[in-house]
Nucleic acid binder design. Structure first.
Length: 576
DNA sequence: GCCGTTTTCGGCCCGACTGTTTTCAGTCG
């Protein structure tokens, strides 16, 4: 397979890290990081652009120099400058900068003065009390380094990221607790949590308070706080027993919008907006927008944007990957919202591995305001889930027909989650598929086929005229299982040519398609179905995670199949 | 290294907290 965008971004990030340790110009370092981010957000393959002789220097954050370096990487798989720099500075130094309290400068000193290149060597030097003798270091720092390394090995992990659903569980009680503190006017979780990234590293909480509030004290007393990392009047950092770090920032109401904007990020978005302010002779910080010493805006985020002549930009878009340019041109997307969703197109029942009955699923769907719910139990190849053969599926079809007679305000769609077998054939014969409203297909085994074979397998499956939706198209489980090797560009072209719909699976462990592929689908004009894959009535509520992900990928209601009314959907399914 | 309704050169977001320091660098977000 050609070099992936993510690989290019990784090489640029490594180069930036080492440059920083070397003490290079910080803006040069930033240029590499910007380029890395822009390339990883790209909805097209940079390798393909290079082979098509497109001018990469036209991409945001890429100039002549970096465009040439991208071409080098695409052609050789390597960044020669990085190889050279590694001769000078061992790449392991990057691990040391990941330790809390040690950044590039101190890591550089440790290397220059003591020749330290690994965590092990760092531990030994600290134990021998050599660190405290270095300039800029002393006893306290030496102790903190040992503590930090101890914690690291205890949790056996480098910087842990939490799935959004887990972060939500930790955030909600904390927000409720803070809301109840006397003098607190507003509370919001900001940061990547508010931008609805699929995983978050820490939680950023913002509070507006009345003068003299004791909110900071009360925060530090919160029962789930394991330890306090930093404490100040306006900002404190703690680590919860669960291991997640929480930063609390306290501001006055007059600054709340500016602080929310600042604390929501992303950092790259903030830099871009503040720069626009600077061009207009304004200073933007977390306290407001300032003209000289006078605060001229800051109570709401809308005010802040208005001062740089931008409309409000939704948090999910704030990555500085095109949203500011779109806002300037008045071309921001009219983002999908949960209320646009009219039904769920992948769900399971007790007939296979689900835990609720047809009737219970139908009732729960109606309660959520849906018009339809597709019942898509597993097919026979998934034996562990008691998958349906043609006979049992036939009986379920009859049962759904009978139930639909009685149901009011909701329609159950007859469907299946059909296995795509290793050779690309489907797990049940066409004569039973013919009786279904919807055929959701997916890969459940042989994840480790070579990319070429896996791609062929799925594309052959898509060719079946009954194939409606490709479910969890890459098979990834966040933090647990890598996506299987598949040529997504080819797969997408296959989907586009046959009118196949791609699923955005809303299970918080999956969120498959990943954001970059959802964006790719949108740009190629491929319809996306957001489905919960619910195995019980409660899991129907996972829909929100799918909607968040879709919003991050700029999807509008029209891009999503299940925003259609039952009548429109019927028409689309028939034309398939 | 990028970029341009002040600019093709000279800028590049901004502030809180900590620890090592007598005024600030480093780190972090």
């Amino acid at each position: 397979m050609p070099v992936q965008n993510a690989e290019i971004a990784e090489l640029f990030n490594q180069y930036a890290d080492l440059l920083e340790i070397k003490g290079a110009n910080e803006y040069r370092v930033r240029a590499y990081r910007n380029a890395a981010r822009n390339i990883s957000n790209l909805s097209r393959s940079a390798a393909e652009m290079v082979s098509g002789s497109e001018d990469l220097a036209k991409l945001p954050g890429l100039g002549k120099d970096l465009a040439a370096k991208v071409a080098d990487i695409v052609n050789t798989g390597k960044l020669p400058q990085l190889e050279e720099l590694k001769e000078e500075l061992p790449a392991e130094l990057i691990d040391i900068t990941r330790l809390a309290g040690l950044g590039p400068k101190r890591t550089g000193v440790l290397y220059q003065e003591l020749g330290i290149t690994s965590i092990e060597q760092l531990t030994e030097a600290a134990k021998r009390r050599e660190i405290r003798e270095l300039p800029g270091f002393a006893v306290k720092t030496e102790q903190k380094i040992l503590e930090e390394i101890g914690r690291r090995s205890a949790t056996a992990g480098d910087e842990k990221r939490y799935k959004l659903s887990v972060a939500e569980e930790l955030a909600q009680p904390l927000l409720a607790y803070l809301k109840n503190v006397e003098g607190v006017r507003r509370v919001d979780a900001a940061g990547s949590y508010r931008r609805k990234r699929e995983t978050v590293r820490d939680l950023d909480v913002l509070v507006a308070h009345k003068e003299g509030s004791r909110v900071m004290e009360r925060f530090l007393e919160y029962e789930d706080v394991d330890r306090v990392v930093a404490r100040g009047d306006t900002r404190s950092t703690v680590v919860l027993r669960f291991g997640m770090q929480v930063d609390l920032r306290v501001v006055a109401e007059a600054s709340y919008g500016a602080a929310l904007h600042y604390f929501t990020g992303s950092q790259a978005h903030n830099i871009a907006v503040r720069k626009m302010g600077g061009n207009k002779g304004l200073k933007i910080n977390e306290y407001g927008v300032f003209k000289g010493d006078e605060r001229i805006a800051g109570r709401t985020e809308e005010e802040v944007y208005a001062r740089v002549e931008l409309p409000y930009i939704e948090p999910e878009l704030r990555e500085n990957s095109g949203e500011i340019e779109a806002a300037q041109k008045g071309e921001l997307p009219d983002l999908l919202v949960l209320e646009n969703i009219r039904g769920d197109l992948q769900t399971h029942t007790r007939a296979t591995d689900g835990r609720s009955s047809l009737q219970e699923m139908a009732d729960a769907a109606r309660q959520r305001g849906y018009e339809y719910l597709a019942v898509t139990d597993h097919s026979k190849h998934v034996t562990v889930a008691k998958g349906l053969d043609a006979d049992r599926l036939g009986k379920q079809i009859d049962e759904i027909d009978r139930l639909n007679e009685k149901l009011d305000g909701i329609v159950l769609l007859k469907g299946i989650e059909l296995d795509i077998l290793e050779d690309g054939s489907l797990d049940l014969p066409d004569d039973i598929l013919r009786r279904l409203d919807i055929v959701v297909c997916s890969v459940h085994y042989k994840f480790n086929l070579p990319a070429e074979k896996q791609t062929e397998r799925i594309i052959k499956g898509i060719d079946n005229p009954y194939f409606t939706i490709l479910a969890h198209p890459t098979g990834r489980m966040i933090g647990q299982r890598e996506p299987y090797a598949v040529d997504m560009e080819r797969l997408m072209k296959g989907a586009r040519d046959t009118g196949c719909v791609l699923e955005l699976n809303a299970q918080p462990d999956r969120l498959d398609l990943a954001e970059v592929y959802v964006r790719m689908a949108r740009e190629m004009g491929i319809m996306v179905a957001i489905s919960t894959d619910a195995h019980s009535v409660n899991e129907l509520d996972f829909m929100r995670f799918g909607v968040y992900q879709a919003r991050r990928a700029w999807l509008e209601p029209g891009d999503v199949l299940n925003t259609r009314s039952w009548k429109e959907l019927q028409k689309l399914l028939r034309n398939r």
